[in-house]
Simulated assay, not measured.
Amino acid sequence: MAPSGGGGGGGVAPPARVDLNADLGEGFGRWSLTDDDALLDVVTSANVACGFHAGDPETVLAVCGSAARRGVAVGAHPSYRDLVGFGRRYVDASRTELVADVLYQLGALAGLARAAGTRVSYVKPHGALYTTAAGAGVHGEAVVEAVRRFDPELPLVALAGSPLLDLARAAGLRTVAEAFADRGYTATGALVDRRSPGALVTDPSEVAARVVRLVTEGVVRSVDGADVPVRAESVCVHGDSPGAVAVARAVRSALEAAGVQVRAASS
C-alpha cells in the first residue's frame, strides 16, 4: 500500500479504488449494538473494538472469526479507557499511560485475531481518542509511538487532512487518510460535533451519493452548503448509526455502479 496523500484536493485525481470500513465488535456481554455479520458482508475492513470502549473477548473473537471467513481485513480500534462513555469522552491521560493503554489493546486484539485465523492489519483510534489524536498533540504522539513500538509495519488510519497523518509519516509509519460516509463536515473539513445539528446523515441514498462524489470528485458538501476538498483512501460507515446495514449496502452498490473498486486499504 502506498503512503497516504493526506487530505485536501490539491488538484490530485481521486483514487479509482477505496476501502469501506465499519466499527464492529462493539457489543458487551448480553448487550448487542450492531449486526456485525451483515456489515461484514458489505465492508472490506473491520475496525474491531479492543475492550476499552466496548467489545468483550467473546464478541471480539467471534467478529474476528467472521471477518476471517469473509476475507475482511481486521483493524484495531483502540480507545480511551471509557467503557461507560463508549469512548466518546476525553480522558486526560499522560503520554506514557496512553502509550501503555493503546499497546495493551493492540496486544489483546492481536491474540484474539490470531486465534480466529486472521491478524491485525491496521490501527484506527476510536471516538474521542480519534478526534484528539488527529490534532497531533501529546495524545497523537502517544498513538504513533504505540503503533510504532507494537509493529511499525501497521498502517495508521486517521482523518483526511489531519496533522496526525503528517506526524505518523514522519515517524516512518504508513498511513491511510479516512473520510466518513455518514458524518457531517464543517467548511474547514472538520467533523461536525455529534451534539450539533447535521452531525449525522442517515438517509441511505443521500449517504451513497455523498460518498460517490467524495471518491470520484474529491469533495464533500459541508453542513453550510460549501464543497470541501477531501482526499481519502478509506470511507467509514458507523456501525452504530441508524440503519447502518442499509447505509453500507447503498454506499457499496453506488460505488461499484460508479466503477470504483472497493477493497481493503491495508491489502
Rank of each mutant, 00 (worst) to 15 (best):
M1Q: 12
S4T: 10
G9K: 01
A13F: 05
A16R: 15
A16E: 15
R17C: 08
V18F: 00
L20C: 02
A22H: 03
D23H: 00
L24D: 00
G25H: 03
E26W: 02
G27Y: 00
G29N: 06
W31S: 15
S32T: 14
S32V: 13
T34C: 13
D36I: 01
D36N: 07
L39C: 02
L39D: 02
A46S: 09
A49V: 04
C50W: 03
C50M: 05
H53A: 09
D56R: 06
P57R: 15
V60R: 10
L61M: 07
V63S: 04
C64I: 01
A68L: 07
R70W: 01
V72A: 09
H77C: 11
R81W: 06
D82G: 14
D82V: 12
L83I: 05
V84K: 15
R89V: 11
Y90F: 15
V91M: 11
A93T: 15
A93S: 15
S94W: 06
E97D: 15
A100C: 07
V102Q: 03
V102S: 06
V102T: 08
L106V: 10
G111W: 00
L112R: 10
A115G: 13
A115E: 14
A116D: 14
G117M: 08
T118I: 02
S121Q: 03
Y122C: 08
Y122I: 05
Y122V: 04
V123I: 04
P125M: 09
P125Q: 09
A128T: 07
L129Q: 04
T131K: 14
A133D: 07
A136K: 08
G137T: 07
G137A: 08
V138F: 03
H139F: 00
G140R: 05
E141F: 01
A146N: 01
A146L: 01
V147Q: 04
P152Y: 02
L156Y: 03
L156E: 09
A158Q: 02
A160M: 07
A160C: 09
P163T: 10
L164P: 05
L165Y: 03
L167K: 03
L167C: 03
L173P: 04
A179F: 01
D182R: 02
G184P: 09
Y185S: 13
Y185G: 13
T188F: 05
L191N: 10
L191K: 09
R194C: 11
R194G: 13
S196K: 15
P197S: 10
G198D: 12
A199E: 10
A199G: 12
E206N: 09
E206M: 08
V212F: 06
V219F: 06
V220Y: 06
R221C: 13
G225W: 02
A226N: 13
A226P: 12
D227N: 13
D227R: 12
D227H: 10
V228E: 11
V228A: 09
V228R: 08
R231M: 15
A232G: 12
V235T: 14
V235G: 14
G239K: 01
D240F: 01
G243Y: 03
A244L: 02
R249H: 10
S253M: 13
A254P: 05
L255V: 04
L255H: 02
A257Q: 15
A257P: 07
V260E: 07
Q261C: 13
R263T: 14
A264F: 03
